[in-house]
Each structure stands twice: as C-alpha cells, then as structure tokens.
Design a protein around this nucleic acid. Structure first.
Length: 290
DNA sequence: CCGGCCG
C-alpha cells in the first residue's frame, strides 16, 4: 500500500467515488489489523469512512457526520465501563442503525460494530480490545476524538453552505445533549438541566484565531471555552461568568481527555434527566442470559 | 502471524 503518490492530503483525486473531498485521514494499527479513518465531504454532506483492513479482508462502515460524536461517546463508554457493564448498544441515525456488541474468544475481547442500512448489505468492523487495558479501543476512541475535533475546525467562512451550517449547529447541540434512554421515553417536564441552552458560533475573529472559542449559556450563566498557550504549554480555559463575577479554570490539554471522560460519565448517569434530541438515539440492549 | 463477523 505504498501507492499514495505525492503524499496526498488530497482533493479527492479521480477516485471512482466521484467528487468526494478528503478532509482528513488517519490510520491506526491494532495488533495485525489496520484501520483507516477518512473524513470526507461531498455535496450531500460529510461522513466518516472507517475501514478495517487485514491481510485477507477489508470492510468498511460509513458514519454520517452527525454520528461521529456518538461513535466517540460509545467508544469512550466501552473503554471506561466496568467489564461487567459492557452492554450492547444500538445507535440509530437517520437511515442507519449501528450495532455495538462485545465478544470474546481465545484471541481476546473485541468490539463488533455493524452497520445496517436499507439497500446495502450489512457491513462490520471488529476492533480488538487490545493486549493490555483495552488499548485498542482507547486508541480507536482517540482517533475518533481527533476526527471529531478536526471536523468542526474544517468549517471555514469560505466553505459555509447551508448544509454545513446546519451540521455545525447540530454538532454544537450534540455537545450539550446526552444519551437517550431507550426504556425511558417520558420527557421530563422540568428540563432545568438544559433550559435555555444556546451555543453561539465563533465569529470571524475567533475563526481567524484558530476558531477554538465557544460560549454556552446555561440558565443565568455563561461559560466561555478558549484555547490558549503560554510557555508552559497549551491549555483550555473555561470561564464561568454570572453577573459581574468571573472565575476560570485552566486545564492543560494533556488532561482534556480525562476531563471529557469524566463529563461523559456524569452525562451517562444523568441521562434520564436530559431532554431527548431528535435524529439520533442510543439504547442499551439487554445482555443475553448468563 | 493470528481471530472474531454467519451474510
């Protein structure tokens, strides 16, 4: 597979797929498998193509743009959950269903991710948990996090079309939303957890400044998220502003992943209190008897 | 190097 002539962060050159633009590509090796992550864009929108390649087989799943953050959350769940809590999950996106199932054989533990869609055969990738401490799943999650982060930075002023603008809004909403609990469909009447949540998109100045500032409003408070750096390194500053009071925490980027995991944990354990969002849902599948 | 996936 050396044929990447010209070292292309390419503009979808030629390939029979049509005019899809490749925004980002990553590879990950887990044991003897090679996974390709390709963030692509065509006039219909963006998607993430994940391919599993072994010496003998190759299979691919296509994740719609709005599903990337859900994939990240789900992989984070499988990485961080206790072993006895590794339930199967189903991720329902607009037209597709992704099934996540944990299996184990003499080679070790693995996560099977199947994509089922009308009009196409089911395709599956299998991600080994890894030799020690689920490093395979964690590495997979880390790539998803990179793709997820990068995907929003790729939205530049000169690329804004109606579709991508909608997607960015949806992405921002996803940041504040939680899993939908499959068995609890009753909406909570007082949704104070996300009342009045709003996300302001970065303006031109912030985009020029790497497009990495965000503001959310929750009840009477505003929270500012800004990337910064000093001679000690890079950090994320989260400022809380209520009235005239402001306080900040400075989080070194080396701790951002842990921060994300912990927030995800609390999202998970409070999910029954979060309003549902439309278009995507995750539900836990009852495990087989054992 | 494995090896899962049951179409």
């Amino acid at each position: 597979m050396e044929g990447n002539s010209g070292g292309g962060v390419g503009i979808g050159v030629g390939g029979g797929g049509g005019s899809d633009v490749e925004l980002m590509c990553k590879t990950l090796q887990v044991e003897h498998k090679l996974f390709y992550f390709d963030l692509k864009e065509n006039p219909r929108g963006r998607y993430l193509k994940i391919s599993e390649k072994t010496s003998a087989t190759r299979s691919t799943i296509i994740v719609p743009f709005t599903g990337i953050s859900w994939f990240l959350d789900l992989f984070n769940y499988y990485v961080t959950a206790d072993e006895q809590d590794l339930f199967s999950k189903e991720l329902q996106l607009d037209t597709k269903v992704f099934y996540f199932d944990v299996g184990e054989n003499r080679r070790g533990r693995f996560l099977k991710v199947s994509e089922a869609s009308v009009s196409r055969n089911r395709s599956t990738i299998i991600v080994p948990a890894g030799n020690s401490r689920e490093e395979g799943w964690a590495a997979f999650r880390d790539i998803l996090a990179e793709v997820n982060e990068a995907s929003r930075l790729f939205i530049l002023p000169n690329q804004q079309n109606p579709e991508s603008a909608e997607q960015l809004v949806g992405l921002s909403d996803d940041v504040g939303a939680g899993f939908i609990s499959g068995h609890n469909s009753q909406p909570s009447p007082s949704s104070d957890l996300n009342a009045d949540r709003s996300v302001e998109l970065p303006g031109q100045e912030e985009i020029g400044n790497m497009g990495v500032s965000k503001v959310i409003r929750v009840d009477q408070k505003k929270f500012f998220f800004d990337l910064g750096s000093n001679n000690r390194g890079h950090f994320l500053r989260i400022s809380e502003v209520a009235g005239s009071d402001r306080s900040s925490i400075i989080l070194p980027l080396s701790g951002l992943r842990q921060f994300h995991e912990i927030v995800g944990h609390f999202v998970e354990i409070t999910k029954d209190r979060l309003e549902g969002i439309t278009g995507a849902s995750i539900r836990t599948v009852d495990p087989p008897q054992r």
